[in-house]
Design a protein around this nucleic acid. Structure first.
Lengths: 337, 337
DNA sequence: TTTATTTACGGAAACGTTTCCGTGAAAAGG
DNA sequence: CCTTTTCACGGAAACGTTTCCGTAAATAAA
């Protein structure tokens, strides 16, 4: 129960509190010898300034919040890695919040963050993006905020995303080139911006490169079993020869359904998916993916946030950032030889 | 730039600060009507008490720290999920720190946490567990700490783990029963406690159930390429017919090596691994795993921590918790039919 | 020598809460 | 009618920092 504070240091050194404080911050108005003594004792006692006190006084917490839908997801794990790299360099701390796709929860988290708990927020929104009063409230309170991946289109904040529309075009075209005549698109229910862009890419690619095909958009629930049934019904009823999963989870479910209903990938149906799965190349068959630069997204978003936190000229208009994804071709879309 | 505080509320309501504060905390000495008014205005203005001020005053932060080696790892992701469940129920916040297996970093994080930044710490240690002065320092400062998975044996704190030794016995025996005559064990270099127990299980199972076999322990570097080369050399030189990977990462590398050197799993070599991979059943071939109750570990560790944080009678001796892992048999250890 | 400046430090206010102590007025008890 | 208790609230201290003022002594400038 030591928990020594600056007062203890001052007493032990026969100095005033203000002198010790200044010495610790290496102020020019403290003599070299005094600094030495203060540093030495501080180190010896492992003195750590109380963050609440400093934070209260300085109105700075050296902490940012990261709000994401979930954790068991290689994409978000990698993003966190990128965020952490920058944050650690800056000597900041990371508070993590998980919304589990629940918009209410997101609102309550964001509201919670509006009064000095953090110096900035990184947010990947969950669900409907039309209601953004909580975002506006945060902006009003002057808390810097940067979106990444799942952004709120209508909000006036920096957004860091990947080229979802173009990648969807590429992915769809990849299936077309592989000979698919009937391509299904699997999407999640929430009409998050990212989902819209991806679907638009799919639709545009079809009408541009395979106008004879009718789009087959399948909305899957976020619940695992529901999604499984939906995909199963779709596969058996419509018999597509290509499936484009807008998120990794749906590709995984699709694999399981194919196993169940005895559809062989890629001979009977080819599968491509947005995914950052570390094991994509080890799947049976290996999965062709559109891989987002997840780590880079996290790193970039964090850097943008710190630009605002450190920003002298805060009111200069910040640009959004769009990073490129990569199509990695594997066996799930291989043409039969 | 609103950021309203309790003073603003008091002024607008013509009440004193103390009255407003008590009203918000639903004190019995404030009349019902006054409470109403205060609540109403607080809600209307989205008043959020400044956490630094409350924390400073109460010497409580409603925040815990979670210190883990890495994030891109389904085991830790699931653990975080369990931790978050409990933490959210309790209305606490989570600070995350990643050690990247660097002991120095772990020490600096832990030291940082010794002065009121958090009310408690959940730690999965990285690397050597013989140096634990930083743990002792934290204990001296009265900050509650609970270990999970990778524990520090010599420290006198609650530890939540899974039955590593018994599971290793089971896994090894599983390979023996599948007919393996030469079983290799892949381990990481750091002699963390968890690694020792798992290896001991392997060794004991061999001497007990297949005494004719000589153990083949292979220490792999944490670096991917190094580990790949080590495993490749081992597989080609010793030609084991069974591989027991002590961690998921090594199993994945082993799969890649087998692909490279044209060894078929499970016919030429059977593979089993400790793993929480969500895609284990989708691998080629599907991977037999010892799956730890990761979510449960997180949940339990968090509950144990809160017992200490909330604890009236803090000095009662807490018991360690050991949760059971599950062997999930899949094709990577299938006997040829 | 007198005045101005620099050096090195101390006192105290402020950050936003919570809570200990008071206190006037109303209600209850005698 | 007077005393005691309860009720409902206000003033101010305290949490540990940082920083704005001050200031005595030493040095430099006049």
């Amino acid at each position: 129960m030591s928990k020594i504070n600056i007062k203890d240091l001052a007493r032990q050194l026969n100095l005033s509190i203000s002198t010790v404080s200044r010495a610790l911050r290496d102020s020019y108005e403290i003599s070299a010898e005094t600094k030495e003594k203060v540093f030495a004792l501080a180190k010896a006692l492992n003195y750590q300034p109380n963050p609440n006190a400093s934070g209260l006084r300085a109105q700075k917490t050296k902490t940012i919040a990261v709000v994401i839908p979930e954790m068991v997801n290689d994409f978000f794990s990698l993003v966190i890695g990128g965020i952490e790299k920058v944050t650690h360099q800056k000597g900041y701390h990371i508070l993590m919040y998980f919304t589990h796709g629940d918009h209410e929860l997101e609102v309550s988290f964001i509201n919670m963050l509006s009064n000095g708990r953090v110096d900035g927020v990184l947010l990947s929104v969950s669900g409907e993006n039309n209601q953004n009063s909580h975002i506006e409230e945060l902006n009003r309170n002057g808390v810097p905020l940067v979106f990444f991946d799942r952004v709120c289109e209508t909000a006036d904040n920096v957004k860091v995303t990947s080229d979802n529309y173009e990648s969807s075009i590429t992915a769809t075209r990849h299936l077309i080139n592989a000979g698919c005549k009937k391509i299904a698109y699997l999407q999640l229910p929430k009409n998050i911006s990212i989902g819209k862009k991806r679907m638009q890419g799919y639709l545009d690619a079809l009408s541009r490169y395979a106008p004879q095909q009718t789009p087959l958009v399948v909305e899957c629930a976020s619940d695992y079993d529901d999604a499984f049934m939906t995909i199963k019904k779709m596969l058996t009823a419509h018999r597509p020869d290509g499936v484009f999963a807008s998120v990794e989870k749906l590709a995984v479910i699709c694999y399981r359904v194919c196993e169940k209903v005895q559809l062989t990938i890629p001979d009977q149906v080819k599968v491509i998916s947005f995914s950052n799965l570390q094991t994509a190349s080890l799947l049976n068959p290996s999965l062709t993916t559109i891989t987002q630069p997840a780590f880079d997204i996290g790193e970039t978003a964090a850097r943008e946030l710190f630009k605002q936190i450190d920003g002298k000229h805060k009111k200069e208009r910040r640009e959004n950032v769009i990073l490129k994804s990569l199509l990695i071709e594997r066996k799930s879309t291989a043409v039969r030889s």
